[in-house]
C-alpha cells in the first residue's frame, strides 16, 4: 500500500489531500456516520477531520502510524459536531434526557468500524463485493453468485478469503489493545 506523503499534505498539495482522502475518507465518514446517523452532519465531520488533520500535519511525527492519529481526529470531530447539535437542539436523534457529557453507545464501537472499513477498502474489489452482498444486502451465497454473475464456488472462496482477512485483522486488533 502506498503511504501518504504527510509533508505534501501539510503543504496543502491537492494531490496529497486526495490521496489521503482515497485511503481514509470512507473510513472517516464511517466513524462520523455510525455515531451521528445523519449524512449532512457526518460529511461536515469529515470536512472538519481533514481540516484539523491538515492544520496539525506539520507537527505529525512521520515515523509513527498515521491511522490511529487520524482516527483520534475523526472521532473528536464527530463528538464536536454531536455536542454542538445537542446544544442547539439540532438534528442528532437523541434522548433529550441524556446529559450532554454522555456520548451515546454509537460512539463506542467506532474504532472497530474504522478498522473494518479500512480493511474492506484495501481488499480486492471482488472480495469486497461479496462482503457487501452478504452483510449489506443480506443475500445468500447462491443469490450473491447470481447477482455478481459468477460461480457459487467463486463466491464461497472469495467470501472465505475476505472474512478470513477480517478475522486476522481482528486478532491483531485484540493483540494491540491487550
Amino acid at each position: 500500500m502506498k503511504s501518504v506523503d504527510v509533508e505534501r499534505f501539510a503543504a496543502g498539495d491537492p494531490d496529497a489531500v486526495r490521496q489521503l482522502y482515497h485511503m481514509y475518507g470512507r473510513a472517516v465518514f464511517t466513524v462520523a456516520y455510525s455515531s451521528l446517523r445523519d449524512r449532512g452532519l457526518a460529511e461536515e465531520a469529515v470536512q472538519l477531520t481533514f481540516l484539523h488533520a491538515w492544520r496539525a500535519a506539520d507537527r505529525f511525527d512521520v515515523t509513527r502510524d498515521l491511522k490511529p492519529w487520524l482516527y483520534a481526529i475523526a472521532r473528536r470531530a464527530a463528538v464536536d459536531v454531536y455536542r454542538r447539535e445537542r446544544r442547539h437542539g439540532g438534528r442528532v436523534p437523541l434522548d433529550s434526557n441524556t446529559d450532554i457529557a454522555i456520548l451515546p453507545e454509537a460512539f463506542e464501537s467506532t474504532w472497530q468500524a474504522w478498522e473494518i472499513r479500512i480493511a474492506l477498502d484495501q481488499m480486492p474489489s471482488a472480495q469486497r463485493e461479496v462482503i457487501e452482498a452478504t452483510h449489506f444486502l443480506g443475500l445468500s451465497q447462491e443469490e450473491t453468485a447470481q447477482r455478481l454473475g459468477v460461480a457459487l464456488g467463486t463466491v464461497k472462496s472469495r467470501s472465505h478469503r475476505a472474512h478470513r482477512r477480517l478475522a486476522t485483522l481482528l486478532s491483531h486488533l485484540q493483540e494491540a489493545t491487550a
Partner: peptide
Amino acid sequence: DQSFWVEPSPTLEDRVVAMIG
C-alpha cells in the same frame, strides 16, 4: 449495521480538497 454501509456523497472529496485549498 446498515449505517456502516452508507456511502458519502460523491462530491465530498472535492469539497474537502476545496476547503483546504
